[in-house]
Amino acid sequence: MYPAPFHYHRVDSLQDAISRLAELGDSARALAGGQTLLVWMKLRFDEPRHLVDLSRIPGLSDIRLEGDEVCIGALATHAEITKSAVAAAIPSVYDCGSGIADGQIRSRGTIGGALGSADPSCDWPVLLHTLDAVLTCTGPEGTRSIPVSELVEDIYTTILQPAELITGIRFRMPPENSAGAYCGFKRCAPAYPTASVAVQLTLEDDICSEVRIALGSAGLTTVTSKEAENILRGSRLTEANIDKAAQAIVAAAEPVPDQRGAEDFKRAVLHSLVKRAVDIAMRRCQGETIGVHREYV
C-alpha cells in the first residue's frame, strides 16, 4: 500500500493552487482530504507525479448562512458539516453527513472532494441534487457557477476544466414547509452504500408543491427523474402515488450488479428507500422530529 513516487506541493492561496495545477498539467492532482485520492494512489490505480495540497488555503472550509443561502466551503469536512448549525437546521444534511463511512474518514474527507471524485456511490452529490445546490468553481479562466446536476458528465468524470477547482457549495435554506431525508443502505460503516436515496419535499396544505428525488449507487451517475417528481408534484402524497413515483425513478436507474448485490436486488432496495425517504420527509414537513434512520448489514 505504497503510492508511486510523487512531488508534494503545499499552497497558501487559491490563486497559487490554480496556477500550480495549470503549470503542472495532467500529471498533477489537487489534494483535499485525500480519502478517495490517496486510497487510489496506494492501490496504484492512479499515479500522479504531483500533488497540490489545498488544505492550508484559508477560508475554504467555512460553513455559514448568507441571508437564506447556505454556503459550505469545498474543504469543509464531512464531520464539520455534520456538527454545524446547517446540519442542525436541515435534518437531511445531518442524515447524509453522519452516515458517510466511519469517523476517521468523516474527519478528513471533504465535501468538495466527494463532489469532484464524481463517484456515483458518494453521498453528498445525491443529497445536493435535491437541494438544487450550485457549485462555485474557480479556474484559470475565472469563477463560474455550476449546478450540481451539471457537474458530472460520466462516472469519475466532471465537466471541470484543467486546474479548475470547486471552492464552495451554495443552496437555498429550505422554507418552513419543506423538508428532506437521506436514506442509505450499507453493509457496514466503512462501505459505500449499496443504494441511497435523497428526497426534498415542500408541502402546502397537504399538497406536494415541490419535490426533488435523487438516487445514489444506482447507475454511473446520480439518477433523477422528472417523471417521478411530476407524479408527486401538485398531488396529495398517498401510498399509491409514492409507490408510483418510486417505480418511475427506479425504472430510470441502471444499477450495476457487483459484490454489493444483483441488479434486481438493488432496484428493490432503491424502491424501498424511496418510499422510506418520502415518508420521513413528509413527516418532517409536518413538524415531526425524526432522527437518522440507518441500518447496516
Binding site: 453493509r187 457496514c188 460503516a189 466503512p190 462501505a191 459505500y192 457487483d258 459484490q259 454489493r260 447496516y296 448489514v297
Partner: peptide
Amino acid sequence: LLTSSFSDYCPITSMN
C-alpha cells in the same frame, strides 16, 4: 476476487 478490501468484504464491527 470481488471482495478483496474491507469496504467490499465488510467484516463485522460493533455497529453490526
